[in-house]
Design a protein around this nucleic acid. Sequence first.
RNA 1: UGCCGGAUGGUGUAACGGUAGCACAGCAGACUCUGAAUCUGUUUGUCUAGGUUCAAAUCCUAGUCCGGCAACCA
Length: 554
Amino acid sequence: MKNEQPSANESEATAPRHFIRQAIDRDRAAGKNEGRVITRFPPEPNGYLHIGHAKSICLNFGLAQEYGGRCHLRYDDTNPAAEDVEYVDAIEADVRWLGFDWGEHHYFASNYFEQLYTYAEELIENGKAYVCTLSPEVFKDYRGVPTRPGKESPSRNRPVAESLDLLRRMRSGEFADGEYVLRAKIDMASPNLHMRDPVLYRIKRFHHHRTGDQWCIYPMYDFAHCISDAIEGITHSICTLEFEVHRPLYDWILDNISVPCHPQQIEFARLNLSYTVMSKRRLLQLVQEGRVEGWDDPRMPTLCGMRRRGYPPAAIRQFCETIGVTKFDSTTEVELLEHCVRTDLNKHALRRMAVLDPIKVVITNFPDESERMVNAINNPEDEQAGTRPMAFTQEIYIERADFAEEPPPKYFRLAPGKSVRLRYAGFITCESVEKDEATGEIRALHCRWDPPETKVKVKATIHWVSATQSQQAEVRLYQRLFTVADPMEDKEREFTDFLNPDSLRVVEARVEPTLLEAAPGDAFQFERTGYFCADHKLSQPGQPVFNQVVALKA
RNA sequence: UGCCGGAUGGUGUAACGGUAGCACAGCAGACUCUGAAUCUGUUUGUCUAGGUUCAAAUCCUAGUCCGGCAACCA
């Protein structure tokens, strides 16, 4: 399937003026940054991107596009203990797949290590930072708690020259991990814990995926992030709510060093989705415990999972626009995401017939060996998609659920003595039921056939495939990964207790022969059943495996 | 019990002193060679209490409830 780029008016058409757009409008009206809008998407390469990241990606890249600016892709790779190059490539593939392009603007915080270090020395020289010798345990004690102020470190008034010397020796590898840290000199009595002389650099002997063993000291997020933003000339540094309390520190650092500009940090609420979990830690746990088949398992809320599942990127973008941007911590119902997926696929997916749980129907008045070609419409939403021929034969398969021996009230489909229309192929009336004598299981239905021209009044049309011409294909049916809307709600139990044991069901379906030519990623609507997509991992040439993207509405 | 943020139907959002709107979900109906799509109708909402005003979701005061913050993580 083609990955169409998001058009500029894709978001503008329905764009509500959420508070970040309003802030940017105000800045531009006031002539701030000469009206430029430069944003950034700053993932840490320590896990795979999920639908929550998509919200941030669409926001940052979308805003840049909307205002004629640009968005940088920058890795926040300041903690080599957690990060790996494996994730870098995966992140890029996901952002591209979503439809966004960073152009030349591809950066790593680690590219700035030398500059960052220079700013650290500047801070010391200005008396705004010092090297502290407190051990981690004592350090914690000195920090105090939210309701009680902290205590000043004995190192706080260390002479500038001494701190400078110590920092240089930290860098040169003279000390053991954790022996010294560089701290900002702010206010140990601040009600904001992050302002109580926060750590700026720590000694950490870890091989970095980009800088190798060049460094044994690494900057903390708070120090690296704001300066990286300033170096890149970011105008609006958009992040999630939990960084709100970091904003005073973000501003303090930039106010106390000679950076070229001072970006503005703006926080918004991260996405929560019902019937799933969204933290990297828990997603990793599902993978490691083998609860799913990997990060890209189609049941995962990861972008690679959704890609395999067959979610169109345009649907995810539409979803991200629809949910809006606020500072209110909320949970969006997964039904809305599914609605966006169906809306997109309804317009674009070719229709095909596939019988997931086949039961044989023998047409009693149809000549043996003979076949009748019918014309099936490929996509009623798109005339350009044309038609295809389908062979109607003496024996066909229909869905087991489309026959009821004792039909309940309001059951419109096939039953003994009752008629239904076969999609594009006339009508059948059930004359007799052939059962296995031992088990009572229905083996086949014997039906009389009437051509399409016949004037018959039926309430239902069902799908079918030729028994002799259809092919076998593996189809994977998915349900929600969890049985409850909020797997984290019950604090007494593990979220894995709520895993849905039926989240994956594999069936052998009978499909139209042309479906065997489906290429990985091709999406179809199996009529009356749902949307399906050829899996790019499990499919073999000529033998596709289909993932259920989403069912049709009941 | 400290600081920061937040509160509009079941859910997500809009309205920025002037008719509480949209989408999803639900329900009912129309249409239909997909019980889909489409179309129509419809149930349900401004956290509470005061105040300002001709007029308050919106401004003010007090409260209630919810989220975040005490990694040498990001």
